Simulated assay, not measured.
Amino acid sequence: MEIQKKILVLCGGKFAFPTLQLLAFEKFMCGIGIGNASETIIDALERESEENHIGFKSFPDKNSVAEMRLWIDQIQPDYIFCISFPFLLPESVLSYGAERFINFHPGPLPQYRGAMPIFEVLKNQETETAICTHFMNSEFDRGNIIFNDPVPIETGDTYGKLTVKLSSRMAQVALNMANMLQFASSIPNQPQDESLSYYYEKPALSDTYINWNRMSAEEIMALINACNPWNAGADATLQGEQVKIIIASLLDEPHDDMPGTIVSVNDRIQIACADNQQIAVDVLTTDSGIMTALQYKILYPEKTGIFN
């Protein structure tokens, strides 16, 4: 009987937990490396690793990755899976073996390179995303593609909902990859099409800010969903006060107001958008805390006017 392949998983936090659990249950996993995680996550994974006799190592910063090769040499995995590991692996680590390092990117490649493809696909109003499995090299998200596994984006998906969906799907994709490696003598792959490539930097305030004069109601809704919960909502300004809009919906009611005008405040805050449509805000964050639109009306009865 052929000996089962051993897989070491490098990850960045909770997003990889379903994958870790499934690969451990199927007896594939021989080690876990965690990068730049909280003490709570590190402690939990270290305890689980000890109980299951799995190698464990924390990599708290970029400099600590220099210690990785020695650790890998000690464990001797057949393959290394990466799931949201935050640091680029140098050639000194990748030289452990060609086509032994496989990354699972939570977005389609090469169109959505970068650290936060979940935010970008939602902001760009895509109807589908993917988990891209690819070989790794010394550049982020540029190795040869093994396959893109499509994942539909449903109406109303937020960053949180889509993250949970992708995390769950990631576990099955990683298990399928592990089973493929168990029996395949070679892994079909192809170079990425650079004519389709785009790299997204980590979102800045300008990326999460609502521009009422330029953005349509659907674009604003897409941004709000893309910012919930990781940015605690989409950023905006109300009469000089910084706010974040957390939950809202499209309102099929035209208006004659300037974009950004508060049309009415009842149980919802209705705001005019640039395309003659409105959004209805249900939950937002102000300097006074998180509140519903009704609570906002009671707390700020005098506040009407324009979001800037």
Rank of each mutant, 00 (worst) to 15 (best):
I210G: 04
T155M: 05
M1K: 12
E302V: 10
E120R: 13
V121Q: 02
G260F: 04
Y112M: 07
A130L: 12
W230M: 14
A174G: 06
F85E: 02
A37L: 09
P203V: 09
L196W: 13
I246R: 04
D157C: 11
I298Y: 04
T237K: 12
C273V: 08
T133N: 01
N308T: 15
P301A: 02
A174W: 02
F28Q: 05
E241N: 15
V263S: 06
M68R: 01
Q295W: 00
D235W: 13
I32Q: 02
N137L: 05
M258D: 14
P110A: 06
E50Y: 01
S58D: 12
G97H: 06
N103I: 03
K303D: 04
Y199T: 08
G240I: 01
I306C: 14
I269R: 00
R47P: 06
N308G: 11
R142T: 14
D61L: 01
G12C: 13
D43T: 12
H53S: 13
F17S: 04
M215A: 05
Q192H: 13
C273Q: 05
I41T: 10
L205C: 03
E241H: 10
K165V: 10
Q111V: 14
A232N: 10
L20E: 04
I54F: 02
L88S: 06
P60L: 09
E219F: 11
R214Q: 11
F17W: 14
